[in-house]
Amino acid sequence: MMKVFLISIGVFISLFSRANDDVYLQKMQQSIEQLNRSSTIVHYQTSANAFERISRVESDKWQPMYYTAYSYVLMSFQISDGDEKDKVLDRAQEWIDTAQKVAPDESELYVLQAFLYPSRIMVDPVGRGMKYMGMANKALAQAKQLNPDNPRAYYLEATFIQNMPAAMGGGIEKAVPLYKLALEKFQHFVPDSVIDPNWGKQVTQEALRKANDEMAME
């Protein structure tokens, strides 16, 4: 009898925690959808807040922290004041750092890190450009090393190359093959779960289309 009782408790607890997991996944999915619909500072802040709440409860999972930081990075691109931008990026950086303690070998976190630096550069392009571009390239190299098939690493690399002056080895022609490579990686990419990072395919297609148009114009 006692045994049955214990088993029942075991089953119940696992059912209960399954249920909790479901709540977690559901909440994450909801918040990701909300983030995907965001476009203003207030929207991004709302998303960041939602992810931050989950991150505080689920302190052993990197995904909510990733999305918190990702929301803040996206938000920072909408802010024009340099000091404000830096403050938001400081917060994003804190969450990347925390996530990296949880999952030190996660390629996506390095991609996100590389995605953050260009926003830092915008505060003071001349003064910060060299330093942060170097750091961004280093982060991308690490992301690729950890997962050579991470399509977002290739997409970001393509955008970096496109925005670099032609005189320094950048430019649209150089970027196109990289966009193509990124797109190829996106075709084969399957996220580990529904809540793992899965952005970038559309923007890559869009960027490639625009780049091809621009080159055709010339």
């Binding site: 709540v23 909440k27 207030v42 802040q45 807040n49 939602a50 709440r53 505080r56 409860v57």
Partner: peptide, 19 residues
């Protein structure tokens, strides 16, 4: 204060202060 995160400790649930 716009965009403040308002929540109960230990919970996913919460809201964001408006404009």
């Amino acid at each position: 204060v716009i965009g403040a995160n308002v929540y109960l400790k230990g919970s996913y649930e919460g809201t964001t202060s408006d404009l």
